[in-house]
Structures are given as C-alpha cells and as structure tokens.
Amino acid sequence: MAWLPLLLATMLGHGSGAPAALKTCGQSLYDATEYICHADNFLCRITAGEPLSVCGGACYSTFQYACSPGGTLALLPAATAAPFTLAVSNPSLPALHGQPVSAAGGLRWAVGGPTASYCPASVVGPDACPPGNATAVLLAADGRAAMAVVVPGGQEVYLAPDWSVGYTQAHSAGMPAGSVVGGFGAYVGGGFVNLNGDGWGWVACAPPPGAADDARWRLVGRNATSAAALAGCAPVNLKVVPFNSSSVGAWQYT
C-alpha cells in the first residue's frame, strides 16, 4: 500500500473529479501532469516543466546531473572555462520557454527583450566595444558569478534581499544590504542553478498590474525562505548556452 499516500495527495490536490484522470504506474496511481512513470514502475516528479529522469533508483535533473551506463549519478562538468548565456526552460510555458535571460536595465535580470549595455566609444574607440547585444555570464570555481564584461572591476551577480537576480553597477561593488553572493552552479550541457537557502531553483514572476508596456518577467531565486511569497510565480530552469561571440558580452551592463 505504499502508493496510498501518493493517491491521497493527488486526490486532495485535484478534488472529487481527480480519479478519472489518474494513470497507473506499477501498483501506484499518479497524476500525469505532476509525475512521469519510468519503465512502468518508477515515478519521478515533473519540476519546472522537466520530467525528472531516473538513475540507479533515484530521480534526477539533467540540468545538473548525468547517469553513467552503470547507473551511477555524477555532476555534469562545471561551466567555469568560458562565458555562457542563459535561456529559460519550461516547455509547459510556451511564452517563456526558450527566451533568453537578459540584462534588462536597472541592474537586474529579466526574461527576453533587448540587452541593456553601454560602451564609452568616445573614450576607448568603437573598435574596443563588444557588440553588447547578448547577456553573457561567467562562473568562478567558488560559486560566485559575474557578468562577462570589459569594464575594470567587473560586475558581480547577486541575489537581492527579495531573492531577485541583480548585478553590481560598473566601477562599484555596492549592492543592497542583505544581498547574497555566490552559491551558484553552472554545468556544461546543463543549467545554471541556485544553491542558496536550500535552493529550489528559479521562478519567473510576471510584471505587476499597471507596469509599463515593455515590462518583463523578472527572475527570482526560490528557496525555503522565499517559496511561500513566490507561490504565484512560474517555476523555470535556466539552461546554459555556449557563448561563442567573444570572451565578453559587453563593455558593461546597465
């Protein structure tokens, strides 16, 4: 009767009409919008639109892990050798799925839209200015992330006190009091993950009512501290995309 708690949880979550929608996986009943059945006998959750894979009796995300032929889980290689860009992933949200993560202006990350960047061409010469039309990121081995820029001192990525993703102003290390730096992971062929505060991944939050027409969805780190406040936001993964244009994305992001 090990399947009974899962059945009860599914019924409670969907009301009296739920039993007709349940499917069978081995001896368990499950909701196919929340779980995937492997080999007709092993259930894994669907998280942020990703049906988790199974390896050696454990469910795992392909954004962070790989399964060896012998059934052993291992972390994907760390993406610390070169800059990369990010793309939002959640196939159940077609308006967001595949959209790039952009430096949206105001020193914050958002979903889609143009990249906000600047280069002092009159000072350094136009030939020294990178294109500045893509948002590129670097990850250090210690889990700290930064924007891939030319400007001296760089621009560090942080999680603000409300757990939204921001980056420092050029020529300044200042950030809101209580912000968190580090605790990130990025994996070749995988994703950019949030490991802070018992990290539960990322969510995209819609612009508030009355926002400007060009307002974009903002990216926020979801964890044990912020989960309740972010219940109305959409869970997403952030896919690491190789950045081949140059070693930097912009002179600086704004």
Rank of each mutant, 00 (worst) to 15 (best):
L7K: 14
L8T: 15
M11C: 14
S16V: 15
A20G: 12
A20R: 08
A21V: 11
C25M: 11
G26C: 00
L29F: 02
E34G: 08
Y35C: 03
Y35I: 09
H38A: 04
H38Y: 07
T47V: 13
T47E: 11
E50A: 05
E50Q: 05
L52F: 06
L52D: 03
V54C: 09
G56V: 00
S61F: 07
S61Y: 02
T62H: 14
F63G: 08
A66K: 13
G71P: 08
G71A: 10
L73A: 00
A74I: 12
A74Q: 10
A78L: 11
A79T: 00
A79H: 01
A81G: 07
T85Q: 08
A87M: 08
V88K: 00
S92F: 13
L93R: 15
L96S: 04
H97E: 07
H97K: 04
G98H: 07
V101C: 07
G105S: 13
R108Y: 11
W109N: 07
V111R: 02
G113H: 07
P114C: 07
P114G: 02
A116S: 14
S117Q: 10
V123L: 13
V124L: 06
P126L: 15
D127M: 09
A128N: 14
P131W: 02
P131D: 02
G132V: 00
L138S: 09
D142G: 11
A146K: 08
A148N: 04
A148D: 06
A148Q: 09
A148I: 00
A148F: 07
V151R: 14
V157L: 09
S164G: 04
Y167E: 09
T168D: 05
H171K: 14
G174K: 09
M175E: 15
P176N: 05
V181C: 09
G183M: 05
A186G: 04
Y187P: 05
Y187S: 05
G189W: 01
G190K: 01
F192P: 07
G201I: 07
P208D: 10
D214M: 13
W217Q: 01
A231G: 08
A231V: 00
G232D: 03
N237Y: 15
V240M: 09
V241E: 01
P242K: 03
N244F: 11
W251C: 05
T254G: 09
